[in-house]
Design a protein around this nucleic acid. Structure first.
Lengths: 193, 193
DNA sequence: CGCCGAGTTGAACTGAATCAAGAAACGTGG
DNA sequence: CCACGTTTCTTGATTCAGTTCAACTCGGCG
């Protein structure tokens, strides 16, 4: 259950087993069926979630009803609406499970307590967020500079496992292109690489 | 000189004057003339910089020679190539000054020492990065969902001071549109609001 | 068996890019 | 302080990548 989280932590910081045990005590576990919500737009995001099994997606819905994927989260990834979690204001993102999933949850209060009790964890999250910034910035640059085909190719290179696990129209939404365009690109690319 | 940095810190965490004084000791100052580089693509990003005066931009140049702005940084903002700074590998971004500027610099080694000496600063950076993630994610969503005009309007709302300080073609590049398109949008919008 | 969501394909359309040319603003050195 | 080159901005004409709309196919599931 907690092995993945421990691995994520020990990859980034030095920490004792006793402390890890203490970390564990701040989390609760949750199972989510496919299509179940972890968070709905407009609610307050009470938890940051660490995925131990399954795939979730976080997304916003625009005025026209179209989904725009912010992030996929599989095993070993964190997911939440950071803004809502931090401020306690209504979430602008929705998060749901694309497969039956298992999560470790921590509330804002538990997070504060944990960071107070185990200050090392500040460093863990600092590094985690720093890496996250690098990844999102990179995605932003790609979205500004690349063509639809280049985006899809990069997605294939960077997250081959996600491509295999989630429906194609969801990938399209993540890349910011229409399902039709993605379908055409795939047809065109068939055989390449 | 350091007031802005201290403000940025005390806005986020509880910290004593003595500790702030210690923080200060890990930084060096640097002045940059307009058009001077802080970092060139291919070099290693040795510093994270805190801007106390002026405006900088970080950007990549694509195969066609076009600039793509990653970030503007004015007074009170941090700027660096996080990836290069963290890994010590070649930077993929360039950073330069758009006005004569003044910076506080901290090296990777000094950063490590500082975080070791004043663990509270982990929390500062954790919060800083967390806010940063929120902002970049927000920008990403906008770049995926909004039209050129909507993007420009949002830019006006969010960063009116930057719009006034940097050339228009740089704004265009930040928004991921061409200077021509931005010029037309501005013409069309003249008088609106 | 029939329905429904997911994916494919085609044709028409469009927002923004590209290409090209001029006008204005800027700053640098004489 | 003016002249000249450079950079920035504007405007028009054309093109194109990707969207939109609509019809059709396929596979799974009640």
């Amino acid at each position: 259950m907690f092995e993945l989280l421990f691995k994520s932590i020990t990859d980034k910081i030095e920490i004792s087993l006793i402390e890890l045990d203490s970390v564990q005590s701040f989390f609760t576990t949750k199972k989510l069926r496919r299509k179940q919500y972890l968070l709905q737009e407009g609610d307050v995001c009470k938890y940051i979630a660490f995925v131990t099994k399954g795939v979730l997606k976080s997304y916003t819905i625009d005025e026209k009803g179209a989904e725009h994927i912010i992030q996929f989260a599989t095993e070993g990834w964190w997911v939440s609406d950071n803004y809502s979690f931090l401020t306690g204001l209504a979430a602008s993102y929705t998060i749901d499970a694309m497969e039956d999933s298992e999560l470790l949850l921590i509330t804002h209060a538990a997070m504060e307590e944990m960071l107070f009790a185990i200050p090392k964890m500040e460093k863990y999250f600092r590094i985690l967020f720093q890496n996250n910034i690098i990844a999102i910035q990179n995605r932003l640059v790609c979205s500004l500079t690349q063509t639809a085909e280049e985006k899809y190719k990069k997605m294939n290179d960077d997250y081959p496992n996600i491509i295999q696990r989630v429906p194609q129209h969801t990938i399209a939404s993540f890349l910011g292109i229409t399902p039709e365009t993605l379908s055409r690109i795939r047809k065109q690319r068939a055989g390449k690489d």
